[in-house]
């Protein structure tokens, strides 16, 4: 079981210059295996930066971060970005194989299986340019799951899609997650989406501090139309509104 530990993490851009700005401050949390955690917060609160630091694409200024897998091998990570980020010169299947270390037949079969799960089995030999935006994002999701990651990072993967496509993909994501049970850290500014998908919601406030860590104990699969989901969504939204009000009356954190 993979465990992600983040301890006193801080990030300051342009450190040592007059333009220095702290985007993450004293972030501490732990995610244990098979949990779906969402990080929500207003724009500019450091959600995507936190994800980039966890993935290793960006350096942090201070604090500790570790990811352990229980099989004694280096932990694997998958990443779903806001945009699909597919190589336009590789077919769908070859895009999925690009991020795989092993190029054997079993891996190809696994990649095909995940493509099938997102409903694109017939499009394996298409180029990304031949697919719609929603289909490309589905390839991005399948690609990330197909590396069989110990930790899957998702950075607002549905924010660029229309409401109907996004709703379909959320349902598909829930199905795949229910089958694979990966540990997921999901960044979104959409509280409704977070409640629908997550076991836990970490709320970041402007200035990059954790405001609240909320557990979501609802049966799955969840749909937005379900009254209990809707009630909880309203409750979490109310808490975020309260945070916003608090921000107006107190000094900025950074």
């Amino acid at each position: 079981m993979a465990v992600l530990t983040v301890k006193n993490l801080a990030k300051t851009f342009n450190l040592g210059t007059p333009r220095a700005s702290r985007v993450l401050d004293d972030i501490t949390f732990e995610v244990r295996g098979q949990t779906f955690v969402s990080i929500v917060g207003p724009s500019g609160c450091g959600k995507s930066t936190l994800l980039n630091i966890i993935s290793g694409v960006e350096e942090h200024t201070s604090g500790e971060i570790s990811l352990t897998s229980d099989e004694g091998r280096p932990a694997r990570m998958g990443y779903v970005f806001q945009d699909p980020r597919l190589l336009p010169w590789r077919s769908v299947l070859r895009n999925m194989m690009y991020v795989q270390d092993d190029q054997g037949e079993a891996t190809v079969a696994r990649a095909r299986r995940y493509l099938d799960m997102v409903g694109l089995a017939k499009n394996a030999d298409f180029y990304p340019g031949q697919l719609s935006g929603g289909m490309q994002q589905r390839v991005g999701i399948a690609r990330a799951f197909a590396v069989e990651p110990d930790l899957l990072l998702m950075d607002e993967p549905f924010s660029h899609l229309d409401a109907i496509t996004a709703r379909g993909l959320r349902a598909q994501l829930q199905d795949i997650w229910a089958q694979s049970k990966k540990t997921v850290v999901f960044v979104t500014h959409d509280v409704v989406e977070a409640v629908e998908l997550s076991d836990r919601i970490i709320v970041l406030q402007p200035g990059g501090r954790i405001y609240e860590d909320i557990g979501i104990d609802l049966p799955r699969p969840r749909r937005q139309t379900d009254p209990t989901v809707a009630t909880l969504q309203a409750e979490v939204l109310a808490r975020l509104e309260a945070m916003k009000e608090l921000g107006r009356t107190t000094e900025p954190v950074a």
Binding site: V57, M77, F81, Y98, V99, D101
Partner: peptide
């Protein structure tokens, strides 16, 4: 650049990034 970041996030080596991202871009 976003393709290079994607490659790094998935742990691709600089050599793989050169071969699969840089070279096809300049073709």
């Amino acid at each position: 650049r976003s393709l290079v970041t994607m490659s790094e996030a998935f742990g691709r080596t600089p050599r793989q990034i050169r071969r699969e991202v840089l070279i096809p871009t300049i073709v």
